[in-house]
Write a protein that binds this DNA or RNA. Structure first.
Lengths: 123, 123
DNA sequence: GCTACCTCTGACGTCAACGTCAGGTTTCTA
DNA sequence: TAGAAACCTGACGTTGACGTCAGAGGTAGC
């Protein structure tokens, strides 16, 4: 498929796809005239990239772990970084869950106060 | 306390604290010579700000919800935005949990492959 | 009162992941 | 075989949350 279709199927902009290629994250065949052509599995690849970006992992780190995704083999050093990223994601989840509690506290307090006309207790 | 101590107690840089004030997120008294002085509760305030930033909420949105945290009262419109942010946090958690699964899959595959010398199955 | 450290206000720099625009070529559709 | 739509390569612009530097003044211990 061409880049426009890949963009549409993944919900990612054409510019972003070119950027991924620039970073070495996404390969493409080229037609005779130089246009990019992608296999179907590029869709999954792009989604994976998006997911890792979403977890705050940088292009460089993603680049480092991608061969491992493809070949299934990782050097101990890469594997160690993978574990590091995993820990980071776990931490992020915990922090967001804590944030959720805070938000709920604010929402509950504000709702009650709005209903009763009274300010809610501090914190 | 002065800004240096607040920075140390919160783990946030002095520059960031000034930035928060610039954005209207953090108030301070001033000494005669113009130095910032903070109450103890500024520590909790800064941590809250950090937490909301961590959830991807912008300065403007935080600014909007802070009076509600202090007074406990929120206009229906603000309350609606709070619910919106809550949903966003929930979504982020779900996405990160999905990412965690992907990472685990990669790690498991890579570890096995490294142990057996065989490539792991696709995906 | 000396010294070392802290703080102040500007103001420009940074970084990542793209957005956007220009000027030109390719591909599809009627 | 037009003309629209998609694509190409640069290259500069954007945004948010600060980092960093300069030059000047404040503060605390001895």
């Amino acid at each position: 498929m061409r880049i426009g279709e890949l963009a549409e199927r993944t919900g990612v902009s054409v510019r972003a796809l070119r950027y991924y290629e620039e970073q070495g994250l996404l390969a493409s065949e080229r037609s005779g005239s130089g246009q990019r052509r992608y296999e179907d599995n590029a869709v999954a690849r792009v989604r994976l990239i998006q997911q890792l970006y979403g977890a705050g992992i940088s292009s460089a780190s993603i680049l480092e772990m991608l061969p491992c995704v493809v070949t299934g083999v990782a050097a101990p050093e890469v594997l160690s970084k993978l574990h590091g990223h995993r820990s980071s994601v776990v931490r992020q989840i915990e922090e967001l869950q804590e944030t959720l509690l805070q938000l709920d506290r604010v929402i509950a307090g504000a709702t009650t106060a709005y209903a009763t006309g009274k300010p809610c207790p501090p914190q």
